[in-house]
Amino acid sequence: MTELPEIATVDDIKQQTTSEYLIRINKGYKHDPGQFFQISLFNIGEAPISICSYDKNYIEMSIRSVGNVTDKLNALQKGDTIGIRGPYGRGYPMHDFKDNNLILIGGGSGVAPLRGVIQYIEKHRDDYKDVHLFFGFREPKEMLFKEDIESYKEKFDVHLTVDHPDDHWKGNVGVITKLLEESRVSNENTIVFLCGPPIMMKFGLQTLEKMGFNRDQVYLSFERQMKCGEKKCGHCMMNGVYVCKEGPVFRYDEVEGLSEKW
């Protein structure tokens, strides 16, 4: 492995849910939405984290506590330092989508990379036509980027749902695929971003097929164990494909035939 981490400083850290924090660091990198960085804390280790912002001056990451590194990252304070290397992988080829309608479907922490896509769209709004957002969370209290989503309602067509409502929830209840089907969005000149847990992507694909979308209109993002990000450590292989390099974003027809994708 070769790229050494650079040291960056935490500029801001905000709790989003019980297990998720939004961390902003003071270093900007040229990157595409959908790419990821390897973030590390010395003595603790390293983990691949997707980017949820699009800005040349800083990067933001929404981090869910699921292990040693992420637990410790979420316990950081403003001014603490982290190691960072990247960006890695292939993100969303936003250039190719010019003059298309966009549908962004996100489930749970899968909404995070899509926020990076939205920030990109906001900076290049004239390049794209209608933008539809379909976001689903397990419970209202697990909803990420609440304020951002509020502001999106003024700019885009926003659909929200939760699996388990609480007493205050007045919106949709149920799986996101249902919402998608009911919306009857057109498949013409449209690109779909599907990002979430495997089960959601699986059912999402079925629904999209029913709605007449072709395989080359749908982009998926995959999660794998990634130790290096440089196509060397071997952990992320999905059949013969290195998810860390050739992904994590794939057009569905590129991976449809891979038996190890789920």
């Binding site: 590390s40 450590c233 952990h235």
Partner: peptide
């Protein structure tokens, strides 16, 4: 075969 794991050893 040179697949590897990465970790920190304090």
């Amino acid at each position: 075969c040179l697949c590897f794991d990465v970790y920190d050893d304090p």
